[in-house]
Design a protein around this nucleic acid. Structure first.
Length: 124
DNA sequence: AGTATGACTCATC
DNA sequence: AGATGAGCCATAC
C-alpha cells in the first residue's frame, strides 16, 4: 500500500481521508481486549453518530475476517444475536475467554462514555 | 423509484 | 425488566 502512496512517508501530500467503513473498522479494532462497546458508540467514535446499523452491517460483511466482533454489543449490553443462536453462543464464549462477565447474554456496559475516551476518539 | 430488511436506538408504557 | 412503535441508514430486490 505504501508503495502506492510514498508521499505519505514524507508528508508532501495530505493522507487520503479514510472512508466511513475504514473508520468504523478502525474503531472496532481499537476496542481493547476484555472491554466492550456498543454499536452506537463505535459509530460515534468513527465520526458517524446515529449509524449503529452501519456498524452492524459491516461486522456482518467482515465476518470471517480478523475482527474483534465479539466485543460489540447492543446499547443495553445485550448480545445482538438471537439467544441460543450459534453467533450468540460463540460471542459469549469469546467474551468469557477474555475475562468479560456475561450473564443471561448480557454484559455490564462501560458507564456512560468516560471523558478520556471521548477525548482520544474525537474525530479530527 | 418504492419497499423490505436488519448483529440498532430511543422514548414510552 | 419486557414490549412496542417510531426513527434511522445502507443494501437488496
Amino acid at each position: 500500500m505504501l508503495t502506492r502512496m510514498p508521499y505519505i512517508l514524507d508528508g508532501s501530500q495530505p493522507a487520503p481521508a479514510l472512508s466511513a467503513a475504514d473508520r468504523i473498522l478502525a474503531a472496532i479494532r481499537a476496542v481493547p481486549r476484555g472491554h466492550v462497546a456498543g454499536y452506537g458508540v463505535v459509530a460515534r467514535r468513527a465520526g458517524l453518530p446515529g449509524r449503529a446499523r452501519m456498524v452492524a452491517r459491516l461486522l456482518g460483511a467482515h465476518s470471517g475476517t480478523c475482527l474483534p466482533w465479539h466485543r460489540i454489543l447492543r446499547s443495553d449490553g445485550r448480545i445482538a444475536f438471537p439467544p441460543g443462536s450459534e453467533g450468540y453462543l460463540e460471542q459469549i464464549r469469546r467474551l468469557r475467554a477474555e475475562g468479560v462477565e456475561v450473564r443471561n447474554g448480557r454484559v455490564r456496559m462501560p458507564a456512560a462514555e468516560d471523558l478520556l475516551d471521548a477525548e482520544i476518539w474525537r474525530p479530527d
